[in-house]
Amino acid sequence: MKDPQRALGWLAAIGLAAGLVVAFGIAPREATQGNVQRIMYLHVPAILVAYLAFGVVLVASTTYLWRRAAGADRLAHASAEVGVIFTAINIATGSIWGKPTWGTWWTWDARLTSVSIMFVIYLAYLLLRAMLEDREQAARFAAVLGIVAALDIPLVHFSVYWWRTLHQPPTVLRPGSIPMDATFVAALTINLAAFALLYGYFVAKRVRLLKREQEVLA
């Protein structure tokens, strides 16, 4: 029972170590930005995994409303929590990256505003879950919010196309080829895989914990 989860944890750890090696040892220094561009290997995988996490919340919430399966509710809860962690990392690293390159820690352009709104909505989701005493009611309300909140995901991603922003358009998730050298793409892919493994590990751990909490505290 515990072994697959532990194996996933080790895979994630190896992935993160490999990610650090490629991010600092193999990927070249970027021509215009210099070494500060290496923040990208944290910043971009963090938001892509957050999209994944909130996508899982959407699917699990829909499944819960349809089938009323307690497992789907636990998956939604765990995935939202981990998604919030990765969104926080994306926002914090973006801010640190923005200061030396753009010249500011923060600005209210459409991308930064929409990602903040996404972060706060999922915080509200977690607060709602903690607030409601009745588990059945909490699951039902959270499922509805988990579906509605997903509307903000495309808003975040396409904000850079729909409005004028300081943030540049996406480099990875975009139509056409990626305007980046192959080594950058490889470094980004390895870090993305590591973050996805870490997401899987955290969610598995959190789901198991929620199940035990519900059994013990029932």
């Binding site: 070249p28 220094r29 970027e30 021509a31 215009t32 930005q33 561009q37 990208m40 390159t101 753009w102 010249g103 500011t104 600005t107 300081l166 540049q168 358009p169 996406p170 480099t171 975009r174 305007p179 980046m180 050298d181 080594t183 950058f184």
Partner: peptide, 17 residues
């Protein structure tokens, strides 16, 4: 009062250009 740099979504290795 404030200058912000807007960069492109392209990333290049040093000798690429």
């Amino acid at each position: 009062g404030l200058i912000l740099a807007k960069h492109s979504e392209e990333y290049k290795a040093p000798h690429d250009a």
